[in-house]
């Protein structure tokens, strides 16, 4: 993993995005008594962002590794 610096940079980017999404002030935008799809707004936001982040991580990590296998096979 450490060799593919692109993967590393992508993961750091995901980390930074996560830090911003899960903290003040972005968090405060959703921090009020309201609902979204019958769910409390902040609850829906946090779990939505969290799931999105995990998808992103899986995509970055797994996708990159496929490419590397191809390359090392060639």
């Amino acid at each position: 993993m450490q060799k593919s610096t692109l993967t590393g940079q992508r993961l750091v980017a995901v980390f930074l995005v996560g830090c911003i999404l899960f903290n003040y002030p972005v968090l405060s935008l959703f921090d009020r008594v309201a609902t979204l799809f019958d769910l409390p707004l902040v609850f829906a936001y946090l779990f939505g962002a969290w799931g999105g982040l995990i998808l992103l991580m899986a995509w970055v990590v797994e996708r990159r590794s496929d490419q590397r296998t191809e390359r090392s096979g060639g």
């Binding site: 993993m1 993961l11 980390f15 996560g18 609850f43 969290w50 982040l53």
Partner: peptide, 24 residues
Amino acid sequence: TGVGFLPIYLGPTLVMTLGGFLLL
């Protein structure tokens, strides 16, 4: 605290994004 229990799990999630460096 409502959603106040979540940071305990968001923190590890964020750190895992750095797992490729730190944990490795």
